[in-house]
Design a protein around this nucleic acid. Structure first.
Lengths: 334, 334
DNA sequence: CTGTTAGCGCATTCAT
DNA sequence: ATGAATGCGCTAACAG
C-alpha cells in the first residue's frame, strides 16, 4: 500500500513536504502542493489512520460497548449517543462484550483503542472496567453503580420504577404478583426486585418464595419462566417482569397455553423497548429515558476528555407507560 | 500512561526483554519474566493496541458498516457475522455510515483501520467503496451489486422475491396493487420494483403511474405514503411495500383512518424483520436468509484475507412468509 | 538469555 | 519553501 513516503518520492519532495501539502499547510508553494496531490492521487494514497492515532496518542473515536451486537437494541439510546458524538466531531464504534475478558469490548477498553467508553453491557466485569478507566480513558457505565475515578455512573431509578409498576398492579386489585428476575449479577435486576418487594410490603402483602421465577433478561428466559408456572399450576394474578424482553416471552408462553394476558393475568415489563407497543396485548411497562441517557452519557465523556470531571453519579427518573397488558380496559369498566 | 519502556526500566531490563517477557516468549528466564510482570502490574501497564497494529500492519478486526447504528437492526445477520468472526479470532466493530464521506464508516474504510469490511449501508457511495477496496482490504457488499476487484457481492433474489409476493397477492384475487418504493438510489428497491411489475404484466394487469408511491425505507416514509393514498382517495386492493419498515408505517396510517389491513386491504412487505410477526395484523412478507448472509459475508472476508479470492458474486434465494396481512383467513374460507 | 537497534506510517521541530 | 531527523509504542532481527 502506498505510504506518504511513496507519494513524496514520486512527487520528488521530502516526506515532510508531502505531509504539509496533504494537510493543507500554508508553508508549501502552490506548485509543489499540486505535484504532491497529483502523486497521491496517482498512487491512490490513503493516510494510515493507525499511524496518525499513534502519533497523536488519540483516536478521535469513542466506543460503545454492548452486551450483544445483535440486539436487542436500545436504538433511542444509541441515537442520543450518536447525536452528541458527531456534534463533537468524534467517531463512534459499537463493539460486543460477548466473551468476557477476551471480548472485543474488553480489548478496546484495555488497549487504548478509543478515547472514551460508554458501557451498556452487564456481562463486562467491574474489574475490567476498573483497570481500564484512567485519565485518558473516561468511562461511563449505564447499567450498574460503580464508584471509581474516571468512571461516571448514569443510573435510572430502577427501584422507584419497579415500585410504580407494582403499585399500579396493586391498585388494579391484583394481589398475587410474581416477579420474573434478570441475572442475579445484574444490579438493575436487584434494584427492581427491591422496588417490587417494597410495593408489596406497603400493602401488607407477603412475598412468597415461589412468587419468584428466575430469568435472564432474554425472551426465552421469560418464556420458560412462564412455562414453569403453568406446569407447576402456580398461576399468579399478575406478573412483574424485570424487563420487556422476558415479558414478551411470557406473553408467548401464556398464549400457547390459552391464557390471555391482560384478561386472565396482568403483566408489566420494564424498559419500554420498541416491540412493547406492538406485541399483543400492547405491553404496560416502565420507560427509561433512553434518549436522554444516551446524550448525557456522551456529554459526560466529552466533559471528561476536556478535563472537567463531572459529578460521578447522575440519576434519572422513570415513567410508567400504561397500555393493555394489565387489563385496564376490562377493569376500568367494572 | 505507562509504556513498555517504563516497565523495562522499572524492571531493569531492555525493552525487548520486557516485550519478550510480556508476550510469553520462551527466550527469557523465569526470574526476569517475573520481574517484568511485576513491574508491569505495579505500573498498571497496558499494551497500546494502536502501536501493535501499526507494527503488524494488521488490526485483527473486521468492520461492519451499517446505515444507522440505531437500527432497524438485522440481528440475525449480525449474529451470523459475529459467529464466524469470533471463530476466526477476530474482533468485530460496527460503525455508522451516516454522514456520507465524512462518516465513521467512510473513514474506517479509507484509513486501513480494519482488515476487512462488510457493508450493509445503502448510504455509502460506490465510489468510496471502490477506492477503498484493495488486496489488504477486502469488502463484501450486501445491499448492492458492484463489480470490482476485492469486492464480493452477496445478493438476494430481490426480483424473484417481489415476484413471489405480488403473484401471491394476485392469486388471492387482488388486482389494483400499489407499490411503495424505497430510495430511488437503492438497487434493492429497483429490483423489487421490477419483480412487482413482472408479476403484474404476467397477469395482464396494467401498471398505472399513480400506483406508485415514493417512500424511503423508513416507517414514517410508509406512513406518509399511505396517508397520501387516503387523502387522494386513491385506495388500492393491496399494497406491496418495498420493505417491512414502510409496511408498518402503512399499517399505522390505515389504522388511524379506520381501514383494516388484512380485511379491507392486503399488504405484504419485504425483509421479515423481527417486528413483522408482532404487528397487528402480523405481516406477510418475503424473508431474506439473513443468518446465512451474515455467515457467508464473514466467510468470504476471511477467504479473501487468506489469499484465496472467492467468486465475486453469490446469489441467495428468498422465501414468502405468509401471515395475516393479506387476509388469507377470510379469503381462504370464501 | 539479554541488549541494541531498526522500522511500522505519520506529523513536526529545527535547520537550511 | 523545503529537507533531515526525531519520536509516538511496539516487536523482532541481530548481536553479544
Amino acid at each position: 500500500m502506498a505510504t506518504i513516503k511513496d507519494v513524496a518520492s514520486l512527487a520528488g519532495v521530502a516526506v515532510s513536504t508531502a505531509s504539509y501539502a496533504l494537510n493543507g499547510s500554508s508553508k508549501v508553494s502552490e506548485e509543489t502542493r499540486k505535484r504532491v496531490v497529483d502523486a497521491a492521487r496517482k498512487l491512490n494514497y490513503r493516510p494510515n489512520g493507525i499511524a496518525r492515532d499513534l502519533k497523536f496518542n488519540r483516536t478521535n473515536t469513542i466506543g460503545l460497548m454492548l452486551s450483544d451486537l445483535s440486539g436487542p437494541f436500545y436504538s433511542e439510546l444509541i441515537k442520543g449517543v450518536q447525536d452528541v458524538t458527531v456534534t463533537h466531531g468524534y467517531d463512534l464504534i459499537a463493539v460486543s462484550s460477548i466473551g468476557g475478558r477476551g471480548s472485543t469490548a474488553a480489548k478496546f477498553l484495555r488497549e487504548k483503542r478509543v478515547d472514551g467508553v460508554i458501557i451498556l453491557a452487564h456481562n463486562i466485569e467491574n474489574s475490567i472496567i476498573l483497570s481500564a478507566a484512567r485519565k485518558d480513558m473516561p468511562v461511563v457505565v449505564l447499567d450498574r453503580s460503580l464508584a471509581a475515578d474516571h468512571v461516571i455512573n448514569i443510573l435510572v431509578d430502577n427501584e422507584g420504577g419497579a415500585y410504580k409498576a407494582v403499585s399500579y398492579l396493586l391498585s388494579l386489585g391484583y394481589k398475587k404478583i410474581f416477579y420474573i428476575a434478570g441475572p442475579r449479577a445484574s444490579s438493575d435486576n436487584m434494584k427492581r426486585f427491591h422496588g417490587y418487594k417494597k410495593a408489596l410490603e406497603e400493602q401488607g402483602i407477603e412475598f412468597l418464595p415461589n412468587w419468584l421465577y428466575q430469568g435472564d433478561f432474554t425472551r426465552t428466559g421469560g418464556y420458560y419462566a412462564a412455562k414453569s408456572m403453568i406446569m407447576q399450576s402456580n398461576l399468579p394474578d399478575a406478573i412483574f417482569s424485570a424487563n420487556d424482553e422476558m415479558a414478551i416471552g411470557v406473553i408467548d408462553a401464556f398464549k400457547e397455553a390459552g391464557i390471555r394476558v391482560g384478561e386472565d393475568v396482568g403483566l408489566v415489563g420494564f424498559d419500554d423497548i420498541q416491540l412493547a407497543e406492538y406485541v399483543s396485548p400492547p405491553l404496560t411497562t416502565v420507560r427509561q429515558p433512553m434518549r436522554e441517557m444516551g446524550t448525557l452519557a456522551a456529554q459526560q465523556i466529552f466533559h471528561s476528555i476536556n478535563g472537567i470531571f463531572p459529578k460521578e453519579c447522575i440519576f434519572l427518573d422513570t415513567q410508567l407507560i400504561i397500555r393493555e397488558s394489565c387489563g385496564w380496559r376490562k377493569r376500568k369498566l367494572s
